[in-house]
Design a protein around this nucleic acid. Structure first.
Lengths: 228, 228
DNA sequence: GTCTATAGACCGATAGAC
DNA sequence: GTCTATCGGTCTATAGAC
Protein backbone atom coordinates (compact mmCIF):
# COMPACT_ATOMS: atom_id res chain seq x y z
CA UNK A 1 0.00 0.00 0.00
CA UNK A 2 1.26 3.52 0.60
CA UNK A 3 5.04 3.83 0.37
CA UNK A 4 6.07 6.90 2.27
CA UNK A 5 9.37 8.47 1.58
CA UNK A 6 11.41 9.19 4.69
CA UNK A 7 10.77 12.85 4.03
CA UNK A 8 7.52 14.45 4.98
CA UNK A 9 5.05 13.40 2.35
CA UNK A 10 1.41 13.12 3.01
CA UNK A 11 -0.29 9.88 2.39
CA UNK A 12 -0.68 8.83 -1.16
CA UNK A 13 -1.22 5.43 -2.60
CA UNK A 14 0.46 5.53 -5.94
CA UNK A 15 3.94 4.95 -7.21
CA UNK A 16 4.84 8.59 -7.26
CA UNK A 17 5.63 8.29 -3.57
CA UNK A 18 8.52 6.05 -4.52
CA UNK A 19 10.42 8.94 -6.05
CA UNK A 20 13.86 9.54 -4.62
CA UNK A 21 14.44 12.45 -2.29
CA UNK A 22 15.09 15.49 -4.41
CA UNK A 23 18.67 16.04 -3.28
CA UNK A 24 19.69 12.80 -4.94
CA UNK A 25 18.24 13.68 -8.31
CA UNK A 26 21.43 15.44 -9.36
CA UNK A 27 23.36 12.21 -8.86
CA UNK A 28 21.21 9.83 -10.88
CA UNK A 29 18.16 11.64 -12.16
CA UNK A 30 17.62 9.64 -15.32
CA UNK A 31 17.71 6.28 -13.66
CA UNK A 32 15.22 7.19 -10.98
CA UNK A 33 12.91 8.69 -13.49
CA UNK A 34 13.07 5.53 -15.52
CA UNK A 35 12.28 3.36 -12.53
CA UNK A 36 9.34 5.53 -11.60
CA UNK A 37 8.13 5.57 -15.16
CA UNK A 38 8.18 1.79 -15.21
CA UNK A 39 6.15 1.63 -12.04
CA UNK A 40 3.67 4.17 -13.32
CA UNK A 41 3.38 2.39 -16.61
CA UNK A 42 2.64 -0.83 -14.82
CA UNK A 43 0.12 0.80 -12.58
CA UNK A 44 -1.52 2.17 -15.67
CA UNK A 45 -1.58 -1.27 -17.23
CA UNK A 46 -3.15 -2.66 -14.07
CA UNK A 47 -5.87 -0.03 -13.99
CA UNK A 48 -6.64 -0.50 -17.65
CA UNK A 49 -6.92 -4.25 -17.19
CA UNK A 50 -9.21 -3.74 -14.21
CA UNK A 51 -11.29 -1.34 -16.25
CA UNK A 52 -11.69 -3.85 -19.04
CA UNK A 53 -12.55 -6.70 -16.70
CA UNK A 54 -15.01 -4.57 -14.77
CA UNK A 55 -16.75 -3.68 -18.00
CA UNK A 56 -16.76 -7.30 -19.15
CA UNK A 57 -17.71 -9.25 -16.02
CA UNK A 58 -18.51 -6.76 -13.30
CA UNK A 59 -16.95 -6.46 -9.88
CA UNK A 60 -18.22 -9.65 -8.29
CA UNK A 61 -17.17 -11.93 -11.11
CA UNK A 62 -13.78 -10.29 -11.58
CA UNK A 63 -11.03 -12.08 -9.67
CA UNK A 64 -7.74 -10.58 -8.57
CA UNK A 65 -5.93 -13.54 -10.12
CA UNK A 66 -7.46 -12.67 -13.47
CA UNK A 67 -6.24 -9.12 -13.19
CA UNK A 68 -2.72 -10.28 -12.40
CA UNK A 69 -2.80 -12.75 -15.26
CA UNK A 70 -4.06 -10.14 -17.70
CA UNK A 71 -1.32 -7.71 -16.71
CA UNK A 72 1.22 -10.51 -16.70
CA UNK A 73 2.49 -10.01 -13.17
CA UNK A 74 2.18 -11.90 -9.89
CA UNK A 75 -0.76 -11.27 -7.66
CA UNK A 76 1.51 -10.20 -4.81
CA UNK A 77 2.87 -7.48 -7.04
CA UNK A 78 -0.65 -6.18 -7.47
CA UNK A 79 -0.88 -5.72 -3.74
CA UNK A 80 2.25 -3.56 -3.84
CA UNK A 81 0.17 -1.05 -5.78
CA UNK A 82 -3.34 -1.57 -4.45
CA UNK A 83 -4.24 -2.90 -1.06
CA UNK A 84 -7.52 -4.57 -1.94
CA UNK A 85 -9.83 -5.58 -4.72
CA UNK A 86 -12.02 -2.63 -3.84
CA UNK A 87 -9.04 -0.32 -4.29
CA UNK A 88 -8.54 -1.72 -7.76
CA UNK A 89 -12.13 -0.93 -8.66
CA UNK A 90 -11.83 2.53 -7.18
CA UNK A 91 -8.72 3.20 -9.25
CA UNK A 92 -10.60 2.20 -12.38
CA UNK A 93 -13.43 4.56 -11.49
CA UNK A 94 -11.00 7.39 -10.80
CA UNK A 95 -9.45 6.79 -14.19
CA UNK A 96 -12.83 6.92 -15.91
CA UNK A 97 -13.74 10.08 -14.04
CA UNK A 98 -10.48 11.59 -15.24
CA UNK A 99 -11.32 10.67 -18.82
CA UNK A 100 -14.77 12.15 -18.29
CA UNK A 101 -13.30 15.42 -17.05
CA UNK A 102 -10.99 15.56 -20.05
CA UNK A 103 -13.95 14.97 -22.33
CA UNK A 104 -16.07 17.62 -20.66
CA UNK A 105 -13.21 20.09 -20.98
CA UNK A 106 -12.78 19.24 -24.65
CA UNK A 107 -16.30 20.34 -25.61
CA UNK A 108 -16.31 23.49 -27.75
CA UNK A 109 -16.70 26.65 -25.74
CA UNK A 110 -19.68 27.79 -27.80
CA UNK A 111 -21.67 24.57 -27.42
CA UNK A 112 -25.21 24.98 -26.12
CA UNK A 113 -26.06 23.38 -22.75
CA UNK A 114 -28.38 20.77 -24.26
CA UNK A 115 -25.78 19.87 -26.90
CA UNK A 116 -23.29 19.35 -24.11
CA UNK A 117 -25.63 17.00 -22.27
CA UNK A 118 -26.27 15.01 -25.42
CA UNK A 119 -22.54 14.83 -26.03
CA UNK A 120 -21.96 13.48 -22.53
CA UNK A 121 -24.62 10.81 -22.93
CA UNK A 122 -23.22 9.87 -26.34
CA UNK A 123 -19.73 9.58 -24.89
CA UNK A 124 -20.92 7.23 -22.15
CA UNK A 125 -22.86 5.07 -24.58
CA UNK A 126 -19.92 4.81 -26.95
CA UNK A 127 -17.65 3.89 -24.08
CA UNK A 128 -20.08 1.25 -22.91
CA UNK A 129 -20.46 -0.26 -26.36
CA UNK A 130 -16.68 -0.34 -26.71
CA UNK A 131 -16.51 -2.45 -23.54
CA UNK A 132 -14.61 0.22 -21.67
CA UNK A 133 -17.19 1.39 -19.17
CA UNK A 134 -16.66 -0.23 -15.80
CA UNK A 135 -19.99 -0.75 -14.10
CA UNK A 136 -20.01 -1.51 -10.43
CA UNK A 137 -22.93 -3.16 -8.64
CA UNK A 138 -24.59 -0.50 -6.52
CA UNK A 139 -25.60 -3.25 -4.11
CA UNK A 140 -22.17 -4.31 -2.82
CA UNK A 141 -21.82 -2.43 0.44
CA UNK A 142 -18.14 -3.03 1.12
CA UNK A 143 -17.38 -1.63 -2.29
CA UNK A 144 -19.59 1.38 -1.71
CA UNK A 145 -17.95 2.06 1.64
CA UNK A 146 -14.53 1.88 0.04
CA UNK A 147 -15.52 4.23 -2.75
CA UNK A 148 -17.07 6.72 -0.36
CA UNK A 149 -13.82 6.77 1.61
CA UNK A 150 -11.78 7.42 -1.53
CA UNK A 151 -10.99 11.11 -1.82
CA UNK A 152 -9.83 10.99 -5.42
CA UNK A 153 -13.06 9.26 -6.42
CA UNK A 154 -15.32 11.62 -4.53
CA UNK A 155 -13.47 14.68 -5.79
CA UNK A 156 -13.73 13.50 -9.37
CA UNK A 157 -17.38 12.62 -8.99
CA UNK A 158 -18.24 15.97 -7.45
CA UNK A 159 -16.36 17.90 -10.11
CA UNK A 160 -18.01 16.03 -12.95
CA UNK A 161 -21.44 16.28 -11.34
CA UNK A 162 -21.07 20.00 -10.66
CA UNK A 163 -20.10 20.68 -14.24
CA UNK A 164 -22.91 18.63 -15.74
CA UNK A 165 -25.32 19.93 -13.12
CA UNK A 166 -24.59 23.48 -14.22
CA UNK A 167 -25.31 22.63 -17.81
CA UNK A 168 -28.58 20.96 -16.81
CA UNK A 169 -29.76 24.09 -15.02
CA UNK A 170 -28.69 26.25 -17.93
CA UNK A 171 -30.52 23.99 -20.36
CA UNK A 172 -33.65 24.16 -18.24
CA UNK A 173 -33.43 27.96 -18.13
CA UNK A 174 -32.96 28.33 -21.87
CA UNK A 175 -35.96 26.08 -22.34
CA UNK A 176 -34.25 23.18 -24.10
CA UNK A 177 -34.63 20.70 -21.23
CA UNK A 178 -37.93 20.05 -19.48
CA UNK A 179 -37.88 22.30 -16.39
CA UNK A 180 -40.51 20.18 -14.67
CA UNK A 181 -37.96 17.41 -14.10
CA UNK A 182 -35.71 18.11 -11.08
CA UNK A 183 -32.10 18.65 -12.15
CA UNK A 184 -30.99 15.74 -9.98
CA UNK A 185 -33.33 13.41 -11.84
CA UNK A 186 -31.88 14.58 -15.14
CA UNK A 187 -28.36 14.03 -13.82
CA UNK A 188 -29.13 10.51 -12.60
CA UNK A 189 -30.89 9.70 -15.85
CA UNK A 190 -27.79 10.72 -17.77
CA UNK A 191 -25.49 8.79 -15.45
CA UNK A 192 -27.60 5.68 -15.77
CA UNK A 193 -26.86 5.58 -19.51
CA UNK A 194 -23.45 4.28 -18.42
CA UNK A 195 -25.01 1.05 -17.18
CA UNK A 196 -28.05 0.91 -19.43
CA UNK A 197 -28.58 -2.69 -20.54
CA UNK A 198 -30.39 -1.65 -23.71
CA UNK A 199 -27.26 -1.01 -25.83
CA UNK A 200 -25.91 -4.43 -24.93
CA UNK A 201 -29.19 -6.14 -25.80
CA UNK A 202 -29.38 -4.34 -29.14
CA UNK A 203 -25.77 -5.16 -29.90
CA UNK A 204 -26.42 -8.82 -29.06
CA UNK A 205 -29.38 -8.72 -31.43
CA UNK A 206 -27.05 -7.77 -34.25
CA UNK A 207 -29.67 -5.75 -36.11
CA UNK A 208 -27.97 -2.38 -35.66
CA UNK A 209 -24.51 -0.89 -35.90
CA UNK A 210 -22.97 0.67 -32.83
CA UNK A 211 -23.64 4.14 -34.22
CA UNK A 212 -27.31 3.34 -34.79
CA UNK A 213 -27.63 1.94 -31.29
CA UNK A 214 -26.13 5.07 -29.78
CA UNK A 215 -28.47 7.35 -31.70
CA UNK A 216 -31.51 5.20 -30.94
CA UNK A 217 -30.82 5.20 -27.22
CA UNK A 218 -30.06 8.92 -27.28
CA UNK A 219 -33.35 9.52 -29.02
CA UNK A 220 -35.35 7.48 -26.53
CA UNK A 221 -33.55 9.23 -23.69
CA UNK A 222 -33.92 12.84 -24.82
CA UNK A 223 -37.05 12.68 -26.96
CA UNK A 224 -38.88 9.94 -25.07
CA UNK A 225 -40.88 7.03 -26.41
CA UNK A 226 -44.06 9.03 -26.97
CA UNK A 227 -44.49 10.58 -30.39
CA UNK A 228 -43.80 14.32 -30.65
CA UNK B 1 -44.76 -19.95 -10.12
CA UNK B 2 -47.72 -21.50 -11.93
CA UNK B 3 -49.30 -24.43 -10.11
CA UNK B 4 -50.80 -26.81 -12.57
CA UNK B 5 -53.67 -29.01 -11.68
CA UNK B 6 -52.87 -32.71 -11.54
CA UNK B 7 -54.81 -33.03 -14.76
CA UNK B 8 -53.05 -32.71 -18.06
CA UNK B 9 -49.65 -31.48 -17.06
CA UNK B 10 -46.39 -32.18 -18.79
CA UNK B 11 -43.10 -33.12 -17.22
CA UNK B 12 -41.60 -30.55 -14.90
CA UNK B 13 -38.95 -30.54 -12.23
CA UNK B 14 -40.83 -29.06 -9.32
CA UNK B 15 -42.85 -30.69 -6.59
CA UNK B 16 -45.94 -30.92 -8.71
CA UNK B 17 -44.28 -33.81 -10.53
CA UNK B 18 -44.39 -35.71 -7.25
CA UNK B 19 -48.14 -35.83 -7.41
CA UNK B 20 -49.63 -39.30 -7.26
CA UNK B 21 -50.83 -40.93 -10.44
CA UNK B 22 -54.39 -39.94 -11.10
CA UNK B 23 -55.91 -43.37 -10.63
CA UNK B 24 -54.90 -43.28 -6.95
CA UNK B 25 -56.69 -40.05 -6.22
CA UNK B 26 -59.90 -41.82 -5.50
CA UNK B 27 -58.24 -43.91 -2.79
CA UNK B 28 -56.64 -41.17 -0.70
CA UNK B 29 -57.29 -37.90 -2.38
CA UNK B 30 -57.28 -35.72 0.72
CA UNK B 31 -53.95 -36.95 2.04
CA UNK B 32 -52.12 -36.53 -1.23
CA UNK B 33 -53.62 -33.16 -1.78
CA UNK B 34 -52.54 -32.07 1.68
CA UNK B 35 -49.00 -33.39 1.22
CA UNK B 36 -48.70 -31.74 -2.13
CA UNK B 37 -50.10 -28.54 -0.76
CA UNK B 38 -47.44 -28.51 1.95
CA UNK B 39 -44.69 -29.03 -0.58
CA UNK B 40 -46.12 -26.38 -2.83
CA UNK B 41 -46.48 -23.97 0.03
CA UNK B 42 -42.86 -24.49 1.00
CA UNK B 43 -41.75 -24.13 -2.58
CA UNK B 44 -43.70 -20.93 -2.76
CA UNK B 45 -42.03 -19.66 0.41
CA UNK B 46 -38.63 -20.51 -1.06
CA UNK B 47 -39.30 -18.72 -4.30
CA UNK B 48 -40.63 -15.65 -2.52
CA UNK B 49 -37.55 -15.54 -0.30
CA UNK B 50 -35.32 -15.87 -3.35
CA UNK B 51 -37.28 -13.12 -5.04
CA UNK B 52 -36.78 -10.78 -2.11
CA UNK B 53 -33.08 -11.56 -1.76
CA UNK B 54 -32.51 -11.18 -5.49
CA UNK B 55 -34.13 -7.77 -5.34
CA UNK B 56 -32.14 -6.77 -2.27
CA UNK B 57 -28.63 -8.05 -3.00
CA UNK B 58 -28.59 -9.41 -6.50
CA UNK B 59 -27.67 -12.89 -7.65
CA UNK B 60 -23.95 -12.85 -6.95
CA UNK B 61 -24.27 -11.61 -3.38
CA UNK B 62 -27.18 -13.86 -2.52
CA UNK B 63 -26.06 -17.09 -0.83
CA UNK B 64 -27.99 -20.32 -0.71
CA UNK B 65 -27.46 -20.41 3.06
CA UNK B 66 -29.27 -17.11 3.34
CA UNK B 67 -32.19 -18.45 1.38
CA UNK B 68 -32.43 -21.49 3.60
CA UNK B 69 -32.17 -19.36 6.73
CA UNK B 70 -34.85 -16.98 5.50
CA UNK B 71 -37.24 -19.81 4.73
CA UNK B 72 -36.33 -21.54 7.97
CA UNK B 73 -35.41 -24.88 6.44
CA UNK B 74 -32.18 -26.82 6.03
CA UNK B 75 -30.04 -26.10 3.05
CA UNK B 76 -30.29 -29.72 2.00
CA UNK B 77 -34.04 -29.35 1.79
CA UNK B 78 -33.59 -26.59 -0.71
CA UNK B 79 -31.82 -29.00 -3.02
CA UNK B 80 -34.81 -31.32 -2.85
CA UNK B 81 -36.73 -28.62 -4.69
CA UNK B 82 -34.11 -26.88 -6.79
CA UNK B 83 -30.92 -28.40 -8.05
CA UNK B 84 -28.78 -25.28 -8.14
CA UNK B 85 -28.57 -21.64 -7.21
CA UNK B 86 -29.28 -20.79 -10.83
CA UNK B 87 -32.46 -22.84 -10.66
CA UNK B 88 -33.57 -20.79 -7.68
CA UNK B 89 -33.09 -17.59 -9.62
CA UNK B 90 -34.90 -19.01 -12.60
CA UNK B 91 -37.86 -19.95 -10.41
CA UNK B 92 -38.02 -16.39 -9.10
CA UNK B 93 -38.01 -15.06 -12.64
CA UNK B 94 -40.73 -17.47 -13.68
CA UNK B 95 -42.82 -16.28 -10.75
CA UNK B 96 -42.35 -12.64 -11.71
CA UNK B 97 -43.25 -13.42 -15.30
CA UNK B 98 -46.40 -15.08 -14.03
CA UNK B 99 -47.29 -12.00 -12.03
CA UNK B 100 -46.58 -9.90 -15.10
CA UNK B 101 -48.91 -11.99 -17.20
CA UNK B 102 -51.62 -11.64 -14.59
CA UNK B 103 -51.12 -7.88 -14.55
CA UNK B 104 -51.21 -7.60 -18.32
CA UNK B 105 -54.42 -9.60 -18.37
CA UNK B 106 -55.95 -7.37 -15.71
CA UNK B 107 -55.70 -4.21 -17.80
CA UNK B 108 -59.10 -2.88 -18.90
CA UNK B 109 -60.16 -4.10 -22.29
CA UNK B 110 -60.78 -0.58 -23.55
CA UNK B 111 -57.36 0.78 -22.57
CA UNK B 112 -55.40 2.45 -25.34
CA UNK B 113 -52.08 0.85 -26.41
CA UNK B 114 -49.96 3.71 -25.05
CA UNK B 115 -51.84 3.65 -21.75
CA UNK B 116 -51.10 -0.05 -21.51
CA UNK B 117 -47.39 0.53 -22.04
CA UNK B 118 -47.31 3.25 -19.41
CA UNK B 119 -49.17 0.95 -17.03
CA UNK B 120 -46.60 -1.79 -17.57
CA UNK B 121 -43.71 0.56 -16.92
CA UNK B 122 -45.43 1.90 -13.81
CA UNK B 123 -46.02 -1.61 -12.53
CA UNK B 124 -42.33 -2.49 -12.93
CA UNK B 125 -41.20 0.69 -11.22
CA UNK B 126 -43.58 0.17 -8.32
CA UNK B 127 -42.41 -3.40 -7.93
CA UNK B 128 -38.80 -2.27 -7.99
CA UNK B 129 -39.35 0.43 -5.39
CA UNK B 130 -41.17 -2.08 -3.21
CA UNK B 131 -38.06 -4.25 -3.25
CA UNK B 132 -39.83 -7.06 -5.07
CA UNK B 133 -38.21 -6.92 -8.47
CA UNK B 134 -35.45 -9.51 -8.79
CA UNK B 135 -32.73 -8.17 -11.01
CA UNK B 136 -30.21 -10.57 -12.39
CA UNK B 137 -26.79 -9.53 -13.67
CA UNK B 138 -26.83 -9.87 -17.44
CA UNK B 139 -23.10 -10.60 -17.28
CA UNK B 140 -23.14 -13.93 -15.45
CA UNK B 141 -22.90 -16.47 -18.23
CA UNK B 142 -23.68 -19.62 -16.25
CA UNK B 143 -26.88 -17.97 -15.08
CA UNK B 144 -27.78 -16.89 -18.59
CA UNK B 145 -27.17 -20.39 -19.91
CA UNK B 146 -29.39 -21.83 -17.21
CA UNK B 147 -32.19 -19.38 -17.94
CA UNK B 148 -32.01 -19.99 -21.66
CA UNK B 149 -32.41 -23.71 -21.01
CA UNK B 150 -35.45 -23.15 -18.81
CA UNK B 151 -38.63 -23.76 -20.77
CA UNK B 152 -40.98 -22.17 -18.27
CA UNK B 153 -38.86 -19.02 -18.24
CA UNK B 154 -38.59 -18.77 -21.99
CA UNK B 155 -42.27 -19.45 -22.49
CA UNK B 156 -43.23 -16.78 -20.01
CA UNK B 157 -40.81 -14.30 -21.48
CA UNK B 158 -42.04 -14.91 -25.00
CA UNK B 159 -45.68 -14.59 -24.01
CA UNK B 160 -45.13 -11.34 -22.14
CA UNK B 161 -42.94 -9.94 -24.91
CA UNK B 162 -45.44 -10.86 -27.60
CA UNK B 163 -48.27 -9.20 -25.76
CA UNK B 164 -46.34 -6.00 -25.05
CA UNK B 165 -44.82 -6.07 -28.52
CA UNK B 166 -48.28 -6.07 -30.03
CA UNK B 167 -49.25 -3.03 -28.00
CA UNK B 168 -46.09 -1.24 -29.07
CA UNK B 169 -46.88 -1.77 -32.73
CA UNK B 170 -50.45 -0.66 -32.19
CA UNK B 171 -49.27 2.44 -30.36
CA UNK B 172 -46.90 3.28 -33.18
CA UNK B 173 -49.67 2.84 -35.71
CA UNK B 174 -52.13 5.03 -33.85
CA UNK B 175 -49.43 7.69 -33.63
CA UNK B 176 -49.00 7.76 -29.87
CA UNK B 177 -45.53 6.19 -29.81
CA UNK B 178 -42.67 7.44 -31.97
CA UNK B 179 -42.72 5.17 -35.06
CA UNK B 180 -39.08 6.01 -35.82
CA UNK B 181 -37.93 3.90 -32.89
CA UNK B 182 -37.85 0.17 -33.72
CA UNK B 183 -40.40 -1.75 -31.67
CA UNK B 184 -37.65 -3.89 -30.18
CA UNK B 185 -35.89 -0.81 -28.86
CA UNK B 186 -39.13 0.33 -27.25
CA UNK B 187 -39.60 -3.10 -25.69
CA UNK B 188 -36.06 -3.21 -24.29
CA UNK B 189 -36.40 0.33 -23.02
CA UNK B 190 -39.52 -0.65 -21.13
CA UNK B 191 -37.92 -3.81 -19.76
CA UNK B 192 -34.89 -1.89 -18.57
CA UNK B 193 -37.12 0.14 -16.23
CA UNK B 194 -37.12 -3.02 -14.10
CA UNK B 195 -33.44 -2.58 -13.32
CA UNK B 196 -33.16 1.18 -13.67
CA UNK B 197 -30.89 2.46 -10.89
CA UNK B 198 -32.49 5.92 -10.96
CA UNK B 199 -35.46 5.06 -8.70
CA UNK B 200 -33.11 3.64 -6.09
CA UNK B 201 -30.87 6.70 -6.19
CA UNK B 202 -33.83 9.02 -5.84
CA UNK B 203 -35.26 6.97 -3.01
CA UNK B 204 -31.87 7.05 -1.24
CA UNK B 205 -31.85 10.83 -1.67
CA UNK B 206 -35.07 11.00 0.30
CA UNK B 207 -36.37 14.08 -1.52
CA UNK B 208 -39.32 12.37 -3.18
CA UNK B 209 -42.06 9.95 -2.27
CA UNK B 210 -42.29 6.66 -4.08
CA UNK B 211 -45.23 7.93 -6.11
CA UNK B 212 -43.31 11.02 -7.20
CA UNK B 213 -40.31 8.91 -8.16
CA UNK B 214 -42.46 6.64 -10.29
CA UNK B 215 -44.08 9.54 -12.12
CA UNK B 216 -40.75 11.34 -12.62
CA UNK B 217 -39.12 8.28 -14.13
CA UNK B 218 -42.19 7.59 -16.26
CA UNK B 219 -42.08 11.14 -17.51
CA UNK B 220 -38.39 11.00 -18.42
CA UNK B 221 -39.00 7.65 -20.11
CA UNK B 222 -42.03 8.52 -22.22
CA UNK B 223 -41.62 12.28 -22.65
CA UNK B 224 -37.84 12.46 -22.70
CA UNK B 225 -35.52 14.96 -21.07
CA UNK B 226 -35.87 17.53 -23.82
CA UNK B 227 -38.60 20.13 -23.39
CA UNK B 228 -41.73 19.65 -25.45
C1' DG C 1 27.42 -8.67 -0.07
C1' DT C 2 23.18 -6.37 0.56
C1' DC C 3 18.82 -4.97 -0.61
C1' DT C 4 14.56 -4.91 -3.15
C1' DA C 5 10.97 -6.69 -5.96
C1' DT C 6 9.01 -10.59 -7.75
C1' DA C 7 6.80 -15.13 -8.60
C1' DG C 8 4.46 -18.67 -7.08
C1' DA C 9 3.20 -21.52 -3.28
C1' DC C 10 0.30 -21.12 0.46
C1' DC C 11 -3.60 -20.10 3.95
C1' DG C 12 -8.16 -19.18 5.89
C1' DA C 13 -12.70 -18.34 4.90
C1' DT C 14 -16.73 -19.04 2.51
C1' DA C 15 -20.05 -20.68 -0.81
C1' DG C 16 -22.15 -24.16 -3.60
C1' DA C 17 -23.32 -28.85 -3.84
C1' DC C 18 -24.80 -33.26 -2.03
C1' DG D 1 -23.05 -31.62 8.45
C1' DT D 2 -19.46 -32.52 5.09
C1' DC D 3 -16.73 -32.01 1.02
C1' DT D 4 -14.55 -29.51 -2.43
C1' DA D 5 -13.44 -25.53 -5.13
C1' DT D 6 -12.39 -20.93 -5.33
C1' DC D 7 -11.17 -16.44 -3.97
C1' DG D 8 -9.03 -12.70 -1.42
C1' DG D 9 -5.00 -12.02 0.75
C1' DT D 10 -0.07 -13.30 2.62
C1' DC D 11 4.52 -15.40 2.99
C1' DT D 12 9.00 -16.90 1.44
C1' DA D 13 12.68 -18.20 -1.41
C1' DT D 14 15.14 -16.32 -5.19
C1' DA D 15 16.90 -13.46 -8.90
C1' DG D 16 18.92 -9.36 -10.17
C1' DA D 17 20.50 -4.49 -9.43
C1' DC D 18 23.80 -1.87 -7.13
Amino acid sequence: MPKHSPLARDADTDTASKVKPKHLDAIAPVKVSFKVQMLQAREDAIVKAVNRLLAEKGFDLMTVDEVAAEVGIAKASLYKHFSSKEDLAAAAMVRILGLAQAFLASLPADAQPLARLVAVARWMLQLQLAGEMPSLPSQNSSLRANLMANKAYLDGLVQVSDQIGGWIEAAQQDGSVNPKIPALVVLYTLYSRACDPVPGFLKAGGQHSDEEIVELVLSSCFDGLRAR
